[in-house]
Nucleic acid binder design. Structure first.
Length: 214
DNA sequence: ATCCCGAGGG
DNA sequence: CCCTCTGGAT
């Protein structure tokens, strides 16, 4: 676990490499599409998720339209995402809940989002962060993994890591810190084959040389 | 064989 | 904390 100076050094390094992190997600800004995207993404690689999402949105891109879609139609469109039967049921149930309980609109609070079937803390925060642009430190699997590998946060659950990051990240880095971690986990500090040779933090990393740990 | 933007249940 | 779900790419 890095001390405060170590944490500072990590974010300073990010800030030097990317002074103005204006990165915006490639995915949709529409809350509904973001929501469907995260549900599709479970246990699936990003490329396949995007393909599945495109095919589904061509047929239904609103909660009402999705709720009205027959189950087999949904399943057929999202095959590339894998687990399509299970996910089709989940998506339909989610769409129905949106229509039934939320007037066919995606709720704008964490509580409202988590109230939906198939939506947990991670998915809710991702919608808040990337679609609704709230200053929420969404700790998805990328941010979680990077935080632990680097020693920024040692907590065992994403929830606690979020708290720890919020407490330890110097104020001046703001949400940029979150974007750096997110991107770094996706592109460099990957789960399976981390690209340690391409890592700008290699000398600061506690897991340097361990690679597949955590 | 094993991993992948995760939720829900025990 | 553990486990299951169980498709598709590597």
């Amino acid at each position: 676990m890095l001390d405060d100076a170590g944490v500072e050094a990590v974010f300073e390094r990010f800030a030097t490499a990317d002074p103005d992190p204006d990165w915006s997600p490639k995915g949709p800004r529409d809350p509904f599409k973001t929501l469907v995207g995260v549900v599709l993404s479970a246990r699936t690689q990003g490329v396949n998720t995007e393909k599945a999402a495109r095919q589904l949105f061509a047929l239904a891109d609103t909660p009402g339209a999705l709720a009205a879609l027959p189950l087999p139609e949904i399943a057929a469109r999202i095959v590339p995402a894998g687990l399509y039967n299970q996910k089709a049921k989940g998506l339909k149930a989610m769409a129905e809940a949106l229509v039934r309980d939320h007037g066919g609109r995606v709720p704008g609070t964490r509580e409202g989002l988590m109230d939906l079937p198939g939506v947990g803390r991670k998915s809710a925060d991702i919608v808040l962060r990337f679609a609704l642009r709230h200053p929420v430190c969404a700790v998805d699997t990328h941010v979680f993994r990077v935080s632990r590998r680097l020693g920024l946060a040692a907590s065992p659950t994403p929830d606690k890591v979020a708290d720890e990051l919020a407490r330890r990240t110097p104020e001046r880095f703001g949400m940029g810190a979150h974007l750096w971690l997110f991107r770094h986990g996706r592109d460099v500090c990957r789960g399976r084959r981390p690209r340690c040779v391409a890592c700008l933090l290699e000398d600061l990393c506690e897991k340097n040389g361990v690679r597949d740990a955590v």
